[in-house]
Amino acid sequence: MSPINTKAHFLQLIEQNKGIIYKVARSYGKNDEDREDLFQEIIIQLWGAFDRYNEQYKLSTWMYRIALNVAISFYRKERRRIESESPLTESMAEIADESRDSELESNINLLQQFINELKELDKALMILYLESQSYKEIAEILGITETNVATKISRIKDRLKQKFSNIKA
């Protein structure tokens, strides 16, 4: 593939899967500036690794590995002095949407907020689960066993459901 075609192909894949990058950036970045930096850093790393991408493997798996590795490497929070999170509704303002006041919108914000509160690896696990990756794929991306994936997902889901029901109650 010529360099121009490679670039075009890469851009097309990024465009088709930009939601993956955005959701990781949204979940790990502390503020808008941080999220933008992370978004860019992920694209740089994806491009750097693109010539080694083997198309026989699932693109999303490859993208998630890179995106989550970048996020955890340089954008993780310091647990000892967690900064107060900006209200999620405020930071979501960057996405214009007519359904902003709907219940769905509120649920999306709540879910995103719960994910943001999780530890770095649990957060990665939950994003992958919500993206409907199989347990096998999640295990491969994270480097743990499928049994461990199942146990942890069940535990986090319980916590999540509990939080949702507390708020809705």
Binding site: R65, N69, L121
Partner: peptide
């Protein structure tokens, strides 16, 4: 360090 490898392995190295 290779970001295309699994997360726990890469993060441990880093």
């Amino acid at each position: 360090i290779d970001y295309t490898k699994n997360i726990t392995g890469t993060q441990t190295k880093l």
